[in-house]
C-alpha cells in the first residue's frame, strides 16, 4: 500500500529536530533511512502527523573507536559498519553479525538509530547491544539521558523512548583482546529477519575458567535478552563440550518464543539451543587459536 498522508520537515540542526518532535500537536516521528519506518507506513501500522527527516543533521554518522570503546552516531548505516575494519577487533560481534543484517540495498540506507527505535525482536543490532552491555544516548528538548540497552527494549516494537525523544548514539564498552565471542543466526533467506540468533562472549581467567559470560538471544522472545540461566552454567567452569551442552540446554529452556507464521515456539526453542551450542563451540575454538574459520556463505567478501 501507499503510505498515509503526513506532513514533512527536514530540519538543519538537532535542536530544531528536537523542537519539532516536542511540538504540542504531537505525533511526530523521526525519519532516518526509513528502512523500518517506511514498511510500517506502507502497512498503515502507523500514521504520524509529521515526519522529521534527519538527513540534514551533521555529525551523527560517525563511528568512533578509542580506549573507552566504540561510539556510533544514530545515522551510522549498516554499510558504514560493514566497511569499518576497526570493528573486527573493537566490536567483533557486530562485525560478525553485520553480514546477516538485511539485504544489500537496505544496508545502504538503514541506520543504527532506526533499528534500535524500531525494536524488532529478531533484529541483530538490538541483540548485540543487549549482549554487549551497550548504552543508548537519547536527546530531547528536556535534556539528554543514557539508557542501558538491557533496560531500553520493553517488548516487540516497544522501547522506553518517549514521543519527543531521539536516539543520538549508541556506545559499547571497550573490548579486550583475547575475549572469546561468536554470533550465530538462522533465517530462511540470508538477510531476512532471524528465526532465532545468538551473540555469546566470555573471558577466561588464569585457570582457564569462564567469567563474565554473556549469552544474548534474538527472535526467541518479545525483545532481545540475555539468558542468565545459561550464563550461570558457564561462569567459573572450564568450557568444554559438557558445559557447553548444559548451557545450550538451559538456554533453550530459558527462552519464551511465540508461535508465528515463520516457526513454531517449539522449533524456535530448539533452535536457540542449537545456535547457542554452535556459538559457544566456535567462541571456544577461537581461544585456542585453531583455524576456526567455519565458512559461512555470504560473510566472505
Amino acid at each position: 500500500m501507499k503510505p498515509p498522508q503526513f506532513e514533512y520537515a527536514a530540519p538543519a540542526t538537532l535542536p530544531e529536530a528536537l523542537a519539532l518532535l516536542a511540538h504540542p500537536d504531537g505525533d511526530a516521528k523521526p525519519l532516518a533511512g526509513g528502512q523500518s519506518l517506511m514498511p510500517v507506513l506502507a502497512f498503515r501500522l502507523a500514521s504520524p502527523r509529521l515526519l522529521v527527516d534527519l538527513r540534514l543533521l551533521q555529525g551523527m554518522d560517525r563511528i568512533e573507536v578509542d580506549a573507552s570503546g566504540v561510539r556510533m552516531g544514530a545515522k551510522v548505516r549498516w554499510r558504514d559498519i560493514e566497511r569499518d575494519a576497526r570493528l573486527k577487533t573493537a566490536l567483533p560481534l557486530m562485525a560478525e553479525a553485520i553480514g546477516h543484517v538485511a539485504h544489500y540495498q537496505i544496508r545502504n540506507r538503514g541506520t543504527v538509530g532506526g533499528s534500535l527505535a524500531h525494536a524488532d525482536p529478531a533484529a541483530e543490532l538490538p541483540g548485540i547491544a543487549v549482549a554487549c552491555d551497550a548504552t543508548i544516548e537519547i536527546a530531547s528538548t528536556r535534556g539528554s539521558r543514557s539508557v542501558a540497552a538491557a533496560d531500553f527494549f520493553e517488548g516487540a516494537l516497544t522501547t522506553v523512548l518517549q514521543p519527543d525523544e531521539l536516539i543520538t548514539a549508541i556506545t559499547f564498552p571497550a573490548w579486550p583482546a583475547g575475549r572469546a565471542s561468536a554470533f550465530e543466526e538462522l533465517a530462511r533467506r540470508h538477510g531476512d529477519f532471524a528465526m532465532a540468533g545468538t551473540a555469546v562472549w566470555f573471558d577466561l581467567d588464569t585457570a582457564g575458567r569462564a567469567m563474565n559470560t554473556h549469552i544474548g538471544v534474538i527472535g526467541a522472545s518479545d525483545r532481545p535478552r540475555r539468558l542468565a540461566a545459561a550464563e550461570a552454567k558457564l561462569d567459573g567452569q572450564v568450557i568444554d563440550a559438557q558445559s557447553i551442552g548444559e548451557a545450550a540446554c538451559a538456554a533453550a529452556g530459558a527462552c519464551d518464543p511465540a508461535d508465528d507464521l515463520h516457526a513454531s515456539a517449539a522449533y524456535r526453542r530448539n533452535l536457540v539451543g542449537v545456535l547457542v551450542e554452535r556459538a559457544l563451540a566456535r567462541a571456544l575454538a577461537g581461544t585456542k587459536g585453531s583455524g576456526t574459520a567455519i565458512n559461512r556463505s555470504g560473510e566472505s567478501h
Binding site: 500500500m1 501507499k2 514533512y8 527536514a10 525519519l31 526509513g34 528502512q35 517506511m38 514498511p39 506502507a42 502497512f43 515526519l51 527527516d53 538527513r55 554499510r79 539485504h103 544489500y104 540495498q105 537496505i106 545502504n108 540506507r109
Partner: peptide, 29 residues
C-alpha cells in the same frame, strides 16, 4: 511489493543501490 522485500524497484542514488519504495521522493532532494 511496496514494502522493501522484492527489490524490483531498486534504483541507484549517488552510486548506491537503494529500494525506491522505501525512500521518499522528498528525501532525494
Amino acid at each position: 511489493c511496496e514494502h522493501g522485500v522484492c527489490g524490483a524497484c531498486t534504483v541507484i542514488v549517488d552510486g548506491e543501490a537503494v529500494r525506491s519504495c522505501l525512500t521518499l521522493a522528498v528525501q532525494v532532494e
